[in-house]
């Protein structure tokens, strides 16, 4: 899809919901979004849940930008962006997206032990697609793992997603990268810049 459905040039308030599985880097991505919001002059809140959810569970993080953010959590149906690092997690949280909101979903499945042990089933890709399409027309599928591997580290798919997301805003690449560079270890900066640009190039103007 093109970015014609993107937010206006200077959004007044943006709600990001990030969903994935423990270890996918959802928290790092949300840290970047929070710092970016501050750099852009917004009030910001970033909420996450730690604890048992870290161990193979689904992980969510929420970032809100506004002139004054009150609730740290986004009410269901009010997320402008749902950034799903795993495709079944996109389904789990899709109802949080605004009708006009945008879903960025990593075309990647992490199959939980409930499925490998035979107790539950992982839905077919077509089922997931059909289900998500029922909620919104603004869906961007991203080959995050493929692009991350090309960039040099399969774990950088979170940054590929950020790169794709960046195309929906009019802020220049460098604004994002300067925040990103402060949040990743020095030895991984080059890989992360590559991953970011790869994600950015996936989205047409």
């Amino acid at each position: 899809m093109s970015t014609t459905t993107a937010l206006s040039q200077n959004p007044k308030a943006v709600n990001f919901l990030l969903a994935g599985v423990g270890g996918q880097g959802a928290i790092l991505a949300s840290n970047v979004l929070a710092e970016l919001g501050i750099a852009l002059g917004f009030d910001v809140k970033q909420a996450e849940i730690h604890g048992m959810s870290q161990r193979g569970g689904s992980v969510t993080s929420q970032v809100r930008w506004s002139d004054h953010v009150y609730s740290p959590t986004i009410p269901p149906g009010e997320a402008d962006f749902l950034i799903a690092f795993e495709k079944s997690e996109a389904v789990r949280f899709i109802h949080h997206l605004k009708p006009s909101g945008i879903l960025l979903v990593n075309n990647h499945a992490i199959v939980p032990v409930t499925v490998t042990s035979g107790a539950e089933a992982y839905p077919l890709h077509e089922e997931i697609q059909q289900e998500l399409n029922g909620y919104t027309n603004n869906i961007v599928w991203i080959e995050g793992v493929v692009e991350a591997r090309k960039a040099g580290n399969v774990k950088s798919s979170n940054v590929v997603m950020l790169g794709a997301l960046s195309k929906f805003f009019k802020y220049p690449s460098n604004t994002w990268l300067s925040v990103l560079e402060q949040r990743v270890p020095a030895r991984y900066i080059d890989i992360n810049i590559k991953a970011f640009e790869a994600g950015r190039n996936l989205i047409q103007n």
Binding site: V21, M52, S53, Q54, R55, G56, G57, S58, P75, P76, G77, E78, S88, V91, R92, I94, H95, L97, P99, V111, P112, V113, T114, V115, E120, A121, Y122, P123, E127, I128, E131, Y135
Partner: peptide, 16 residues
């Protein structure tokens, strides 16, 4: 607001 999806998604309980 939209209702949660009815598509059966596997649970991810915390595990050892």
């Amino acid at each position: 607001p939209s209702a949660p999806s009815q598509l059966k998604i596997p649970n991810r309980p915390p595990m050892l």
